[in-house]
Amino acid sequence: MYTSTGFISFLFRRISGVALVLYLFTHMWVIGSVNAGPEAFDARLALVQTPFFKVLEIALLAAVVYHAVDGIRLLVVHHFDVTEYRKSLFYAMFAVFVLLTIAGGLPILLFALEG
């Protein structure tokens, strides 16, 4: 195994991408129940209001944020000659990812704890 920051970003990008696809199916499974009437929809919605799903929601947020900021980093790599700064770019992207995830995840967590 040849580990490097580039490989970590590649690995996380792939994992977050796959996770987002899986989420999409869950999302459709919940939304789709609206066809079976309001009771069915409420029941299914209640299922995903449990603390376990709250944690998953934070993970979902992390995946979205990671995939987005890493995508922006890739756009920069493709369009500007920045290979020299590859490590700094990765760390900067990672810092933004952590900050945004905390900024978004904390309210979710607090809301879940209150609820």
Binding site: S4, G6, F7, S9, F10, V77, H78, D81, T83, R86
Partner: peptide, 24 residues
């Protein structure tokens, strides 16, 4: 996938990734 390992591995300090970006 711009993993950049090629740049770090090159013993002649060349930059294949930059070349690939130009070719793209």
């Amino acid at each position: 996938h711009t993993i950049f390992n090629c740049i770090d591995a090159c013993p002649k300090e060349l930059n294949p990734t930059a070349a690939i970006e130009t070719l793209r």
